[in-house]
Structure formats: structure tokens, C-alpha cells
Design a protein around this nucleic acid. Structure first.
Lengths: 239, 239
DNA sequence: GGAATAGTGTCTGTGAGACAGTATAGG
DNA sequence: CCTATACTGTCTCACAGACACTATTCC
């Protein structure tokens, strides 16, 4: 890049990172994977997993790599999408760092492996992570987490990604449970079933049933190919 | 940033830019503002307006500045939102450049002023800009433009931003025209009116009427405070 | 049988698409 | 008068919320 190509105003290069908001449903709660930072800045503080983007590495590729390194989860097993870029000056005390955040949704996963740099990773209920406005989180991760939560809630309305939270095969009740936990409100089981089954290829029947623990055995389904949910499944009390 | 802070794999810093997809409705078509590049790389080629992010400048702030510099439009007069980050290695031949794209929607604007570096800016129908898969566009701007188009079409369904395309005060027909042009399909005038007026505070009546050119004068409205449109105004034939 | 969970049916209100009909302007 | 555009009303069908009822399992 030659000098003539640079603009008049001061321009400095930046470090580029990816941060991951990894959601799952555990213990009747929406949980997010957080790590304890092993070094400065924000050493000992809680943060989203993430790291630097390699020289010849795409953004999504970097996100998949970080996901693997932090959790041992293969990104092919879950839904991954970009949330957006965050680049407020001063968001990282080391200098100009622009991060691209990714949202990952997956079924209940094993306890995460220790990270590459021995950072402790653990699942935390989102509600708890946002306690006190999320001020205990490093960087601007509270902002990113709030954006991710809002995005996930919206996505449940207009797409079929709720099924990404379920381990196949799953029951309609388990799928409904995902909605109830993410939205924080109960849904009518009867109407939910009608809606989901009416939307062709949201879920596909396997023909199998659960070995019931209590009550009548439930039919088991797999994810269908349909991605967009129309008409949408709206949460009550939106404005 | 000290050495110990860097990861094992090679990491280089990157240049950060913002690119703008500025949409408006003109001459019965959705149009996008494109510039002719005055310098390498891609000299003489068509591209989205954009530029480097300043050292102490936020991403959105940079987008607003570029918007002003390229078009003379005050960003307060239109809707601005982030589309996402684009960082595929090799997307810019000068080296690692990560761009954050913004989507701007505005009412019909004057012909753009010449850019700061004498690049010629002009409105182009989106359909034409995407001719031949948009291969004539510089960088990966065809990809960004397609993403922006899809985002704008979606936004019309679930939000009230269509009104951002209208100069106040506007008629219901003008608002409907925006939908028809962006979606590329005709809408029933009667049902559209009912829907828009039923959604409280999507538009607010001014009490005035058009000085009619032909036919009965139409009532004039301003934008209401409502942002989310529920129930949504769905386009036909979605899947 | 009773408890628990799965699944079906039905009633009612609302909203969308289709489209006929009325209102108000210019010519 | 006619034409053009704005606006109103109405019919029908599909769907959502509410909720009663039936089915199948374990105890």
C-alpha cells in the first residue's frame, strides 16, 4: 500500500479479533460459554471466548477455529452466524482492536475443555452473566452479549434455528422447551405442536418414540431442511 | 501490546475500512449510490463508497463521515445500520483489509457531490448494479450489495423503515410504492392501506392533503414512532 | 385406579387476500 | 359526461389463542 493511497486524516492499522457468543440450553436456562482471562488486560475477569484472526484466515474460519480450541466442539455440529463488528475506540486498552462477533447455537455440550492458554471455560446462565448490566465482563462483551441475546430471540421467531439447540432426535416438547427458555415465557403445548407440524419440513418425523420415563411416549423428530419460518412464531407482548 | 500477548499462529494487523450501501427509491426503481474509483486498486472500476476508519473514530462514526463526504447527506436524515464485517483474505490486493459494511436508507436525494478525491458518484438501479452477478464491481462489493438488498427486503417486512425512503409528508400510495419497488411485486392498495393504518403509529396523519395532480387528493402522513411492525407485512411467495 | 405427559379436537376472534363499490379531483 | 386516483366496505378463508378432551405410559 503506497502512501498516496492513504487518506488525509490519521489512519492506523488495527488488530482484528473474533469473539464468540456460544449459547446452549442447560438446566432449564439459556447459558453462554464464558472464559476466565489468564492474562492482561482484564486478567482474571470473565469474557467471551475469542482470539486473534490469523494472517491468511477468514473471519468465519477464525471463529470456527476458536470455537474448536475453546470448547472442542466441531462447528459443523452447530449453527454459526455473524453478529457484527465492534470497533469503538478504547474498547481494548492495548490499542485499536476491532472485533467481529459470532453467534453460535448448539445442543447441550459436554463441559468445555481447558482452553489453549489454560483459561477456565464454563457455562453460565445468560441472566446471571448480565447481572449488574454485565459490568463484570471484560471489554465491551456485555454489549455484544446483549446484542446476541436479542438476535437469538428474534431468530427463534422467524427461523427454525431453535432446533439447533436440540440433540437429534428430539421431541416436540423439547423443542417447545427451547422457546420457553429463550423467550422466558410459557407456550401453549397444543398450539405450539400444531404450528410446528403445520410448517412443512420444520421437523421430520423419525417414526420412533421415546422410551418414556413418565407418561405417554413422545414421537421423535429430526431437523427439517426448512430454514425460514413463515408464518412466524411470534412471542406474546412484542411491540 | 507486548509479545507475550500474541498467539502462536502468525498474526498481522489489518487496515479497517467502512463501506456504505446507500439505497434510495428513484424513477420507480431501488437505486444504490456507486462511485468510480480514482486510484488503484480497481482504478476506474465501480465500487461502493467507503474509506478508512480514523485512529480515534468509531465504526458508525466513520460511516456517517463517509456518507457526508461522499454524498453531502447528513446521516441524521436517514436510517443507518450495520450490515456486518467482511474480511476474506485477499479481498483487497493491498493486503489485509477488513471492512465493516453499513446500510443506509434515505428519501430521494440530490445528485451526489463530487467526492473528496474527485471520484464520480452516481445513482444506479440495484438490478443493473448486479448485472452479470455484479462482477464489474470492485473488491467483494457484489457480495456486500446482495447482502444489503436481502437485508433491506427483510426489514420492510418486520419494521417500519420503508418510511425512511419517503420524504415527509408522504401519502400511503407513496409508501406502498416503496414496497412495490423494493420487493418487485405489486401490492393491493386497499389491503395495504388497511394494514398500515391498523398498525398504530406506523404513520401519523398530518390532516393535510396533496394538491392533486390527477384524481382525488390524498391524505398526507409523517413517520410514526413505531419501529417494529407486528404483525409483519409479508411478501408473497416466500419460503 | 391415579399421576404424568403426549396428542386431538373445537370454538372464537382477528387478520389477509380478493374485489366491489363510493368519493373527489381534473378535463 | 369520463378518467384517474383515493378511500371504504364486505366476503371468505386461514390461522392463533384458549381450552376441553382423549391416549398411553409408569406407579
Amino acid at each position: 500500500m503506497d502512501h498516496a493511497d492513504r487518506p488525509d486524516r490519521p489512519v492506523t492499522s488495527a488488530w482484528v479479533t473474533v469473539d464468540l457468543v456460544i449459547f446452549t440450553v442447560r438446566d432449564d436456562a439459556l447459558q453462554v460459554l464464558l472464559v476466565e482471562r489468564g492474562k492482561e488486560p482484564f486478567q482474571g475477569r470473565t469474557a467471551l471466548p475469542g482470539g486473534y484472526v490469523g494472517t491468511d484466515e477468514g473471519l468465519e474460519q477464525a471463529a470456527r477455529r476458536e470455537l474448536w480450541e475453546e470448547t472442542g466442539v466441531d462447528s459443523h455440529d452447530l449453527h454459526l452466524e455473524q453478529l457484527g463488528g465492534y470497533g469503538t475506540p478504547g474498547r481494548d486498552p492495548r490499542g485499536r482492536v476491532v472485533t467481529v462477533a459470532y453467534l453460535a447455537l448448539g445442543p447441550e455440550m459436554p463441559e468445555p475443555v481447558a482452553g489453549t492458554d489454560a483459561r477456565r471455560a464454563h457455562w453460565t446462565p445468560v441472566e446471571k452473566a448480565l447481572d449488574d448490566e454485565g459490568r463484570h465482563l471484560a471489554f465491551d462483551h456485555a454489549v455484544i452479549l446483549r446484542d446476541a441475546l436479542e438476535r437469538a430471540r428474534k431468530q427463534l421467531e422467524y427461523t427454525t434455528i431453535a432446533s439447533a439447540f436440540c440433540t437429534e432426535p428430539f421431541t416436540i416438547s423439547e423443542l417447545r422447551h427451547v422457546y420457553e427458555v429463550v423467550w422466558g415465557q410459557p407456550l401453549d403445548p397444543s398450539n405450539f405442536r400444531r404450528k410446528v407440524l403445520k410448517a412443512e419440513r420444520f421437523v421430520v418425523a423419525t417414526g420412533q418414540r421415546t422410551a418414556s420415563v413418565a407418561g405417554r411416549p413422545a414421537a421423535l423428530y429430526r431437523r427439517g431442511e426448512k430454514k425460514l419460518l413463515v408464518p412466524a412464531l411470534l412471542r406474546a407482548g412484542e411491540e
